[in-house]
Design a binder for these strands. Sequence first.
RNA 1: GCGGGCGUGGCGGAAUGGCAGACGCGUUGGACUUAGAAUCCAAUGGGCAACCGUGCAGGUUCAAGCCCUGUCGCCCGCACCA
Length: 816
Amino acid sequence: MQYNDRDMDIKQVEKKWQQRWEKAKLNGFDHKSDAPKYYVLEMFSYPSGAKLHVGHWYNYGPADSFARYKRMQGYNVFQPMGFDAFGLPAENYAIKTGVHPKDSTEKNIATMENQLRAMGAMFDWSAEVKTCNEEYYKWTQWMFLQLFKKGLAYRKEAPVNWCPSCNTVLANEQVVDGRCERCSTEVVRKNLTQWFFKITEYAEELLTGLDDLDWPEKTKNMQKNWIGKSTGCEIEFATESGEKIRVYTTRCDTIFGVSYVVLAPEHPLALKLTTPEQQEAVKNYIEYAAKASEIERLSVTREKTGVFTGSYCINPLSGKHIPIYLADYVLASYGTGAVMAVPAHDERDFAFAKKYGLPIEKVIQKQGGETVLPYCEDGIVVNSLEFDGMVGEEARDAIATHISKLGKGGKKINYRLRDWLVSRQRYWGAPIPVIHCPKCGAVPVPEKDLPVRLPYDVEFRPDGKSPLAKHEKFMHTVCPVCGGEALRDPDTLDTFVCSSWYYLRYADPHNEKMPFDREEVDKLLPVDTYVGGAEHACMHLLYARFFTKALRDMGYLDFDEPFRRLVHQGVILGPDGNRMSKSHGNVVSPDDYINEYGADAFRLYLMFGFSYTEGGPWNDDGIKAIARFMDRTEKIVLKVDDYKVKREEPNGADEKALDYARNFAIDRVGKDMENFSFNTAIARIMELVNAIYKYDGLERKNVTLMKATVRDLVLLLAPCAPHFAEELFEQIGGRGFVFEQPYPKADPAALVLDEKEYAVQVNSKIVTKAVLSTSLTDAEVEEAVLKIPEVQAKVEGKTVRKCIVVKGRIVNLIAN
RNA sequence: GCGGGCGUGGCGGAAUGGCAGACGCGUUGGACUUAGAAUCCAAUGGGCAACCGUGCAGGUUCAAGCCCUGUCGCCCGCACCA
């Protein structure tokens, strides 16, 4: 138990400084300061289990070190924390155990608050928000009402994703491989009337806005992909009976190759176009398609199925009469729900045409090669009248123009992004503030009546209906418009609605009159650096951007993007390299390590042992090494502190070397912290400690320099090991808090060395090394290395054609 | 299928086109010790060597882990989006 023999009693030290920081209000944003603001935000916690897991520490610890670094740099740092407290797990837990979600959530939050405090992070608890509190969800409901007013919240019947296990609908974003994101149950489709947010209205801006964001490229790409912009053409095909079918295509250059048209089974014209003889077959098919599960539909290998409606339509360009089919390889929810099938130039259409014996007509030819059907690339248009000979984009432009001249359609942009379904048939969420009146329809709850309170005494055992629907007192109310009897909407809002604006509420968390004051928000927002998991790329991070833009357009904000810079932490795996899980039996509990080594050691290990954005497997030995490093640091700091300054102190090469090490560390650690390159930052601090040890081994020492170096060491370490550094700072006679000290600045002069070791190469092979003055010109360097015997031996009898000098690093003589 | 990322010692991981392997773990040797799993010091990519080494094969360059082309493997996201 050698680590507990340290001079410091870790737990006592941690407690002491946490109390002092709190008392001095060191952790909060200083509303009076005129220093530039810096908003560091970590994604808030879901109060699930009772304790923080390694993932929490990995997210919050290093991010806090970044925040503390920013503070020492002179920024007025705002780093709030709160709880995303509504949601399914609490409700499922309640169903299992009978403990009410409110009770379990509150208990979990209390525990987590204590643990977050024990982490020693610089959270501004005065700004804490909990989304399940009335004071918060009142404004979540208010948000809904504003979106409704603006026409961005609407209700419609639509096929939706239903999770039979969670007994609720899910957003598209919450369906992963046809399964519920939470419980992995296969999702089924249901037709339900639900509330949607019109995020598609912002599709284009959500896409273009990405360009200016300092976000991981991968995340931007995921959002781009999710938004899925596609430029194509809408074309109208008239049926023989006079109906009009609009299809969407990105390949209007293939229009002369259309051999049939396909509607999604859910297409509104499907039954109308069906001839009497085909009625039965079509009805059967529609039923079959409706029953097919998401998993089946998603399967790429699944054979295409479909049915002929009996009707025909006319190709607006060629005038050909072609059959109309239904097939579930066409999606009702994308484009127009209908496509023109070109078997020769589309793999799906090709497969379908083969199966149903439909014609395959080549209208595109490969340039300079044999055309193998289906040929899906761009090529030369053939068999297409006046468009023959055109290629790719040129052909599409000409044909689209022609189609719009005919009044039969034209260019069209489509997005894959769908509107965000926000209704949930669950209890533990913010009630949707809408009243359904038999006379007036869906009426928004007047703002003055907010919040619509979530009742406590609710039967939340699931039966496929909203639990609130069974609460008579909640449900029955009067219509705000006509005063007649009416019912409340029994659904609650998706919890992602709550988390779409919490970063704004932090700026003004106790406002009772509005969700936030514009002035307060302007002071703090946008978030300068946002840190959280990558799994939110197409959910929370997209929704929050949508909210920001919508609020801007409603005049509540004047910035376009909520999060300027985004950093994803990696995932800490179990020691076996697998994701930590109870079933793997590889869960590492922070608590044991915190007890033995302390919060700082734990945080340091998390920073040092992994590349922050990569994560990786946990390793027990790593934390021991950190404890050793801290011991080593403490010893040398205290030892140097005991030294007495002498009248005459040496000032030669050794001192220059120590000062170089000191300034090098300052320079590099700062840059590394800025870049979230914590592992290298700690490595540079370790090097500095090693350099001090080395210098300390000398006979004659410059104590003044050593003391200054040790002081800088403590300051560099402070953001990463906050309690430990405070304690050391106090012991070496520091005044006030270490976090009130400015971050050390490197002395550029000390970083310039008189001499550097060059690798001396002849014909790009290293021959020897040479220590040369850094003041030499390139020609002088060449001259100097040519005097070296080993070099002479290599160039003997040859002519030096060229000499490349990379200052301070390499000399390369090219000789032959 | 599409998009993105990653392949470096025994291990975690470093390297603005410029001495590959920083820092740490582990290992080995030494010191101090009755003792050491503590601490300190030293060595540590492979090979006796010439040399060889960043998944593999090419290319560009005075110089390539880094840039280019191809290829293999792994991971992540999307996926019948017309």
